[in-house]
Simulated scan of single mutants.
Amino acid sequence: MKNIIQIAAVFLLLIGCGNKNNAESVSEEQVEPTGIRVTQDQFDTNDLMLGALEKRTFPKMVETSGMIDVPPENRASITAFMGGFVKNTSLLVGDQVKKGQLLVSLENQEFVQMQQDYLEIFNQLDFLKAEFERNQTLFEEKIASQKNFLQAKSNYETAKARYKGLREQLQMLNISPNRVEQGNITSQAVIYAPISGSVTKMNVAKGSYVSPATEIMEIVDNDHVHLELSVFEKDILKVKKGQRIQFKIPEASEDTFEAEVHLVGTSIDDTNRSIKVHGHLAHEEEANFLPGMFVDAKIMTDTIKTLSLPEEAVIESEGTYYVLKLVDKENGGYTFEQIPVKQGNTYDGYTEIIATDLNETDQFLTKGVFDLIGG
């Protein structure tokens, strides 16, 4: 019996010690400080900065994409009016050309035949004209029959039409009809640059045959480029002429560039239910844009005034955005609470803060947030 009493006493003693340890542990957890504590020295050394929520104007954006392009008159696809073999060309992709510069020479026996036909009809024209005028006079004097007069007139008018047609074809081939009339016949036709610009495509080589359907080369004038954007049907009613555009060239630069809506399309592409929007660039001469560059763009369709903080004050951690709110400032130090918020638009260095439990009297860490909570 004595042994049983001793064992019970030891058991009760152990239980009492355990409860005491638990009470001490709970007490320690209760007094453990919460939040992020920063001393005054740390605040000053790391150039930390406080700020309040500020109402600022933010634009409402329509996000879209597109490309850098040039107007149709600044792009020329070079083809031949008649087929032929490339006799000479010295141009490569990237070469600069001037309007009227010789691009390529083509050679074909059909050019010779055309000039022979032209020279033949040219030489007949004076005779046929004189014959027509003679028969006209005889007919008016009732000496010649009407049949002879009409036949002479038909021969002359037909020859004159053929003469004009062949002359136009020679001019399209850049062969001088005046030189042909002097007996100078050539087997070559030349093609000149219709615009100034740079060669962006070169599809032929010396000796290759080109048909009228073959694109020999392409010339693009980059002096004026623009944005060609595709806006989805659900957003198009928000887009108006004159609205500002911010865009980036994601594959080439981190810089943001400015443009303006110049034209809004009037028909929907059935393939992707989008509408073309044409934008003119601001400070176009300062950027070296090239046609075909892909762009990410935002069109500013409206504005809203809302609470905001500097962009640096908001940081993302594991998919959630946070700010550091000042909850205590005493004993030479600062205590911050990490508050989750919903981030709105970011514009001109400031971020829209969407939160119902924050107000303009609250203080936040606006510089050095990343050093405290990381990303």
Rank of each mutant, 00 (worst) to 15 (best):
A9V: 03
G349Y: 09
C17E: 09
L307D: 02
Q40M: 03
T89E: 06
I299T: 04
R56L: 04
A189G: 14
E120F: 11
V327Y: 12
L12C: 01
N108G: 07
I268T: 04
T346Q: 12
N123S: 13
G319N: 10
E284C: 04
S154V: 02
Y322C: 01
L13H: 03
I4Q: 12
I121F: 14
N359D: 08
L170H: 09
D41W: 12
K206A: 04
Q6L: 13
L119H: 15
S154M: 10
F336D: 04
V264H: 08
S267V: 07
E168W: 11
V10C: 01
S253V: 02
V70Y: 06
N148E: 12
F122E: 05
D270K: 14
K248F: 00
T320H: 11
Y334G: 12
D69S: 04
N272W: 03
N203W: 07
A205Y: 07
R273A: 03
R179E: 15
K55M: 06
D223P: 02
Y347T: 02
E218K: 14
V341Q: 00
F336Y: 05
I339K: 11
Y192L: 13
G197N: 08
V190N: 14
V261F: 13
Y209G: 09
F132D: 04
N88D: 00
L48Y: 14
R273L: 07
Q30H: 08
D44W: 02
S25L: 11
P194H: 04
G197F: 04
R75L: 02
A297V: 05
G292E: 02
L170S: 08
S25W: 09
E29Y: 15
E133I: 12
G197R: 00
V239E: 00
I4V: 12
G51Y: 11
V231N: 04
L119V: 08
S211H: 01
Y350C: 06
M217I: 07
N288R: 14
E337P: 01
F364M: 06
L50R: 15
V97R: 01
L326C: 08
L237S: 15
Y209H: 04
V93P: 10
A259P: 10
